[in-house]
Each structure stands twice: as C-alpha cells, then as structure tokens.
Design a protein around this nucleic acid. Structure first.
Lengths: 101, 101
DNA sequence: AATATATATCGGTATTTCCCGATATTCCAA
DNA sequence: TTGGAATATCGGGAAATACCGATATATATT
C-alpha cells in the first residue's frame, strides 16, 4: 500500500477512465465475452486499448502502472491478459483517505 | 474539485507530510504561537519550511500546489501567510474516493 | 515449423515535476 | 525612508511521466 505510487497512478485521466470502465465491464465492453471469452470480470488489453484510443504500448504500460499500485490484478489466460479492479485495494484506499490523510 | 490536480498534489512525500502536520498544528509546531502569533490554526510558511528541511522557495511552491488543489487555504496577515487544511475538501475527497473512484 | 494474434518491453521525444539559488514583492520597524 | 523579515516568483538542471513506433515474447492455429 504505497500511497504515493497509488496517487501517482490516479493522476492521469486515461487511467482514471480505465478504472471506471472496469467497475462495470459488461456495460462498457458489451462484446467482450463474444471475442475474448469468459474471464471472471476481467477485460483484455486490446479492448481497453480500443476504447481508450491510445496505442497498445501505452495502454499496456498504464495497466502495469495500475497493477504496480495494486489497483488492478492481471490474469493471463492463453494469449490474453485479463485485468480487473482490485476492490480490496480501493476499500483500503478509501479507509486511508477517510482517516489518515 | 479537480481530481487529477488533487491526486497530483498528493503524489509527493513532503506535501503529504505537510498535510499531516497541519492536522495538529499545535502538536507539530509547538512554538509557533510564540513566534508567529495567533493564527486560527494556520501555520506560517517559515515554520513549515524549517520542519520540512527543503528550501523556502520549494515549500512556498508546494503550498501553492496544495492551495490550487483546494486542500489548504491561505490567510495573509501582515508579513505572514498562514496555511491550514481545508477539511471540507478532504471530506469531499473522501466521499469521492469512497463512491466514484 | 510457420504464421498470426495478444501482450510486453525497448528506445525515444516532449512535457511535467522536483528542487534549487537568485530576485522581486510585501509588510513592519527603526 | 531605509533596512530587515516573510513570502512569492523566476529561471534552470535533473529526473520522472506521457505518449509513440518498433521490436520481442508468448500463445494458438495451421
């Protein structure tokens, strides 16, 4: 739980959007299951990339930033890496902001 | 309430320390009143600067960053500028993190 | 084995941030 | 009104960040 790493990860519009999209994957990525299969709520990099409109390398790096901050978890299955929110981390962050900031 | 500006402001160890010190000014700046007078919980730049151990210009700029983010308020009285936490902003941030992140 | 697909990593340029010293501004005191 | 104290602002060098295109790696398919 590195506060500074977390706040840095949250200091970018695109990364905030991604986190928001991942709150409701089936809403924001309606055709994900059809093209990427079942993934327990995780969304693959390519879909996130297309929606964000930045390059593949940039989105891959952004997801790595979010993962290093602990805000998302990655799950590689075959050729896809599924990313999903780490709600425990958000709960912990919420507590931290509410009581220790 | 610019989320990104707030998270950027929080992405620095010294600024986080300052915000923490300002939670209990009389504890962290025990001799403040004697040298800077009554200030309604605000602490002058010089005291913050000495405690932080960075230069005056850096701390002045950091306080401006925190102020632009809305996290502190400044109150100039004579030759001193007293900074204090804006607790309303922290409450709003806490709500935001708890419900919209 | 060869190819195609999804993702990660590398190298690079432009911008931003960190932190400094020097200078400007504002206010007080003699 | 001159000097001193507190703060703000300016200019700059080093490091980090925002993106990109190109390439590498891993997996799946044929």
């Amino acid at each position: 739980m590195d506060q500074i790493e977390i706040f840095k990860a949250l200091s970018n519009k695109t990364r905030l959007q991604i986190l928001n999209w991942l709150k409701e994957p089936e809403l924001h990525f309606p055709d994900h299951k059809a093209s990427c299969g079942e993934s327990d709520g995780g969304v693959c990099v390519g879909h996130i990339q297309k929606k964000a409109g930045l390059t593949q390398s940039t989105i891959s790096e952004y997801l790595a930033v979010l993962q290093r901050a602990g805000l998302v978890t990655a799950n590689r299955v075959g050729q896809w890496t599924y990313y999903k929110r780490n709600e425990e981390a958000f709960a912990a962050l919420s507590n931290l902001v509410a009581s220790e900031l």
